[in-house]
């Protein structure tokens, strides 16, 4: 499956996803509860150490915050204007630690494991009338549909390219949606025919 998982066999890789999610939730709450920049800086050091422990180079930690660098700049400017640059630095460090920790979870956990975790977690709810089989079906269908849709969009784009319409978003989306909606009819018939 196409995911952001990074191969490895450290303790973080083999740990159950549930514990990692719990750890992330506790860390996030602590970061906001303890309103102290020294605490956030210590947490940053721990986070970087965790990346090292998972056998991930530090540039992977940097990659977690690179997409939001311009937001950091904006925060810094706004805080320097309205509060002080010190607050800005505090906010940015806390923000960066959260992004790195969440990224660490994603890098060390396969999507399939996370989905298994969700399904296992939902199972007790089936006694309350929740159709967990329906949820599993929806998840696996979506995973199957994504590459199908991406290729439908690509095909339609190529067809519209021949007409010089490849930059026209309506000429791309309308045929793609019509095609996939027609497909959905056949798919649900096929699932019912197999006695779901």
């Amino acid at each position: 499956m196409l995911d952001l998982y990074s191969e490895g066999n450290s303790r973080l890789h083999t740990m159950k996803p549930g514990w990692k999610i719990l750890g992330l939730a506790i860390s996030g709450s602590l970061l906001f509860a303890v309103d102290n920049i020294l605490f956030s800086i210590a947490f940053l050091a721990v986070t970087l150490a965790l990346f090292a422990a998972a056998g991930l180079p530090l540039r992977r930690a940097w990659a977690q915050i690179r997409p939001v660098i311009w937001i950091f700049v904006l925060i810094m400017i706004a805080q320097a204007l309205f509060n002080s640059w010190w607050v800005g630095l505090f906010v940015i460090i806390r923000f960066a630690v959260l992004l790195m920790l969440a990224g660490l979870l994603t890098l060390t956990t396969r999507s399939s494991e996370m989905i298994d975790g969700i399904e296992a977690g939902l199972r007790p709810l089936s006694r309350l009338g929740l159709r967990t089989r329906g949820i599993s079906l929806a998840i696996s269908l979506t995973l199957r549909f994504i590459p199908v849709l991406a290729s439908v969009v690509r095909e339609v784009r190529e067809a519209q390219y021949a007409r010089g319409l490849e930059r026209n978003i309506l000429a791309l989306t309308i045929p793609a949606i019509v095609r996939t909606l027609k497909m959905s009819e056949d798919i649900s018939d096929a699932i019912d025919a197999r006695g779901f």
Partner: peptide, 21 residues
């Protein structure tokens, strides 16, 4: 119904596929 589940999955996937544009 199964049709509902298929449509829910389809629009979830569509939202993802729109990221390709």
């Amino acid at each position: 119904t199964t049709k509902d589940i298929v449509l829910i999955a389809l629009f979830a996937a569509l939202t993802a596929a729109l990221g390709v544009i």
